[in-house]
C-alpha cells in the first residue's frame, strides 16, 4: 500500500447535490493543476466526514479540509481548526473539528495543524448543478487554494487564516 504523504487535502460533498459539490470540485481543480508540489499532497474525497476519517490524519504535517457551507459570510472562509465537541458528533456527518476531537481521543495527542476552506453554497437539491453564485465562489476559492499550495508552510497558512474577509 502507498506510503502516507505529509500533506492531506480532504474535500467532501456530493457531486450530484447542487452546491454540495463545491468541495469535490475544488479537488478536481487542484488535481488538474499538476503542480510538482502535489507530489507531497494526498487528495481524498468522500460524501461526508465520519469517525474513521480521524485515522486519515495520522502522520500528517498539514491538513486542509474543503467543504460547502451555508453559514459562510463571504465567498469563502479560511480558518485554522481546533478539536471541538460540537453537535455534529451525533449525526451521520461530522464537522472537521469533531473529527479532530475523535483523533485527539483515540491517539491521545494533539492533531496535526488542520485548516478548513469553506466555500459558500446556497442550494443543495439532488440533480442540481452549481448555482451561479457558487460558481463565482468556487473560482475565488480555487485561486486562493492555488496560493496555499504554492507554500506548504504552516506559518504561511496561519497568516492567511488571519486575513479577513475573503
Amino acid at each position: 500500500m502507498p506510503e502516507t504523504k505529509p500533506v492531506l487535502v480532504f474535500g467532501y460533498g456530493n457531486l450530484s447535490r447542487g452546491d454540495d459539490a463545491l468541495g469535490p470540485l475544488l479537488l478536481e481543480y487542484i488535481e488538474r493543476r499538476e503542480k510538482p508540489v502535489l507530489r507531497a499532497v494526498e487528495i481524498l474525497s468522500d460524501f461526508q466526514l465520519q469517525i474513521e476519517h480521524a485515522l486519515d490524519l495520522e502522520n500528517r504535517e498539514l491538513v486542509l479540509f474543503v467543504d460547502a457551507s451555508v453559514v459562510c459570510g463571504h465567498a469563502f472562509d479560511f480558518v485554522e481548526l481546533a478539536p471541538a465537541r460540537d453537535d455534529s458528533y451525533t449525526t451521520h456527518a461530522m464537522s472537521p473539528a469533531a473529527v479532530l476531537a475523535v483523533y485527539q481521543s483515540i491517539k491521545k495527542q494533539t492533531p496535526p495543524p488542520c485548516f478548513l476552506l469553506s466555500i459558500k453554497g446556497e442550494s443543495f437539491e439532488l440533480g442540481e448543478g452549481l448555482s451561479a453564485a457558487a460558481e463565482t465562489h468556487l473560482a475565488a476559492a480555487c485561486e486562493f487554494a492555488d496560493g496555499l499550495l504554492d507554500g506548504l508552510d504552516v506559518a504561511k497558512w496561519r497568516h492567511r487564516a488571519q486575513e479577513k474577509p475573503h
Partner: peptide
C-alpha cells in the same frame, strides 16, 4: 450521549468502532 464520551469512558470500545468502520 456522544462518541467522544464513549471514547473517554470506554476507550477500547470506542476505538474498536472507529477501526471496524475503517
Amino acid at each position: 450521549r456522544n462518541i467522544i464520551a464513549v471514547l473517554t469512558d470506554y476507550p477500547d470500545i470506542g476505538l474498536q468502532g472507529v477501526k471496524m468502520r475503517k
